[in-house]
């Protein structure tokens, strides 16, 4: 494993005191490595997103796409490399500092990961209850706004087990947007949904991106969805980004793997 000194996992004290830099790229990943035991999942990923840009990460199952998202938000720790959100280093941060960075990042999990003991509105209110000095009325108003935006305002008191998978994704999206993040990470937002519901989720993501000028990374196997919601696509293979560019760039590629991947999914 070769990691340069400026991409060391353990941030220095200077890094820990960093404030967000408005001019810095919202997401900047440099030379990211991650292994699980003997299995090297990511082998030097480099990725940078401009403000308001959406990049879809494609690739076969088990190539580390979801791992990349979890590394970006600090749920897992890289072996080497650097991840910066608005110029602030994520790796090696103490929990308090990491939580400050996380407030600017929303994460939609593959299965929505709603708290199954809480109702729909309690799920969305959960991050708000702890992070902001909002009054009860203001919080309630914000929860209603968020749920109305995703078309779930009529299901406030239902438990996650009482709503469909598509509805769970909507509630998950509302919860991810509760803290008004400007960076969003989507882990297979349309997985397991029928084509119509998947299109609705795509439309919802596009709407949110436009309204809030979100910078997003979308991990997906759904090529039509990736085409709809992304400015750029990156195809992962053997822990490295094989090709990166617009959908047309990928289509123009003569690489056997790229051709096979696009043809299978199209």
């Amino acid at each position: 494993m070769t990691a340069s000194t400026d991409t060391t996992v353990h941030a220095s004290n200077e890094l820990r005191k960093e404030a967000p830099q408005p001019d810095a790229p919202p997401i900047q990943v440099k030379n990211l490595h991650k292994s699980f035991g003997e299995q090297r999942v990511l082998k030097g990923i480099d990725l940078e997103l401009a403000r308001g840009e959406t990049v879809s990460i494609l690739g076969r199952s088990g190539t580390g796409k979801s791992v990349l998202l979890k590394l970006i938000i600090g749920l897992q720790h890289p072996d080497a490399g650097s991840i910066r959100i608005h110029g602030r280093e994520v790796t090696g941060q103490p929990r308090g500092q990491l939580n400050e960075i996380r407030k600017s990042v929303g994460f939609l999990f593959q299965n929505a990961a709603l708290y199954d003991a809480l109702t729909v509105q309690q799920n969305v209110a959960f991050p708000l209850e702890r992070q902001r000095g909002l009054s009860e009325a203001e919080r309630s108003q914000r929860v209603r706004e968020l749920l109305t935006n995703v078309g779930m305002e009529k299901h406030l008191d239902k438990l996650p087990g009482q709503i469909s998978g598509g509805m769970q994704k909507r509630v998950g999206l509302a919860r991810a947007l509760a803290l008004s993040p400007d960076v969003m990470l989507f882990d297979e937002p349309t997985a397991g949904l029928d084509p119509i519901t998947a299109s609705e989720i795509d439309a919802l993501i596009l709407k949110m991106q436009k309204e809030a000028n979100l910078t997003s990374i979308v991990v997906t196997h759904d090529l039509p969805s990736a085409r709809t919601i992304s400015n750029r696509l990156a195809l992962l293979r053997d822990g490295e980004i094989l090709i990166e560019g617009s959908f047309q760039d990928l289509q123009a590629s003569k690489d056997e793997f790229v051709v096979e991947f696009l043809n299978r999914d199209s």
Binding site: N99, R102, K103, F107, F126
Partner: peptide, 10 residues
């Protein structure tokens, strides 16, 4: 992943 979701919500 509910615990991960909690962490992701800071």
């Amino acid at each position: 992943e509910q615990i991960d979701a909690m962490e992701a919500s800071a």
